[in-house]
Amino acid sequence: MLELKDVSRRVDGVDHLVNISMRLEPGALNVLLGPARAGKTSLMRVMAGLDRAGEGAILFNGVDVTGQAVARRNVAMVYQQFINYPGWTVRENIASPLRVKRASREEIEREVGRAAELLRLTPYLERKPLELSGGQQQRVALARAIVKKASLVLLDEPLANLDYKLREELRAELPRLFADAGSVVVYATTEPLEALLLGGNTATMSEGRVTQFGPSGEAYRRPNSLETARTFSDPPLNVLPVENAAQADRYPGARTLAFRAHHLRMERKTAAAHTYTLEVLSSEITGSETYVHLRHGDHRWVMLTHGVHAFEPGSQQTVYVEPDDMMSFQADGRALGHAGKAA
């Protein structure tokens, strides 16, 4: 179990990490979700011991490892860029952590063979990493992490530089790769959808803070703050400031309302639905879905509808939001109790 206690890090007067406390358990995947520069990589580097936390402590199974050198910690890390030793063959690359541990020849042979089999690298063992495709290179890096049987495995956007098909393939494989080793696995991503697909727990990050940490579906359905809801939303969250008395009556205490793109509908489901007639700014068709960008006052809303529909920019469109889908937030951004079936 990895435990962070009030970890902060400042570099040249800029906050990279602010008061982060969390407990990461082995077994389930722990996803760090946030936009670029939210602090995901900084946090991983501190967890790995590559960077030092300015304040706070890092405990591994109850032992303080805050100041321990990275070589002495039992961690593995896979970067977004495909990082392997270019001069070594795939076999030597995968064997690297075992060789350092002075494992026996038979053990190295067996473990490298097993990892290569698991990641379908067996035909490429004698090649150099740069002779392989991007997906294979990243598999080599993953294989190296697997053979190490590290107690902490850090995956920093490992699929971001892969093409769509490979990403789907590897994403499906990932959770089971480290499942039986009993490692704490941390996975950073910028994509909310990826966090949901991977399951496990998600920590949403924003400006160096962890805004929420819990089971991924839970954080998605019940964000504890506007910040979390925004981070965990793709397409962007639609925001509606509470401005009139009718809204204030309906959502007591709320200053901001928000809802997701697929909750903006072209048909009304209940009589209580909020109704808006808005100007269409643009629309994008992605195969079987249509994204419609609408203007609501100073805000831009996005509606996600199934099927292919034609929307004329500049035309008016009447849209509906069900009250149950509305998330409401206080002035300080914290969530108010809201409808539970908001997914």
């Binding site: 990275v70 190296r144 190490k148």
Partner: peptide, 8 residues
């Protein structure tokens, strides 16, 4: 860093 992480 990968080398240090590997334990070199």
């Amino acid at each position: 860093e990968t080398a240090y992480i590997d334990g070199h």
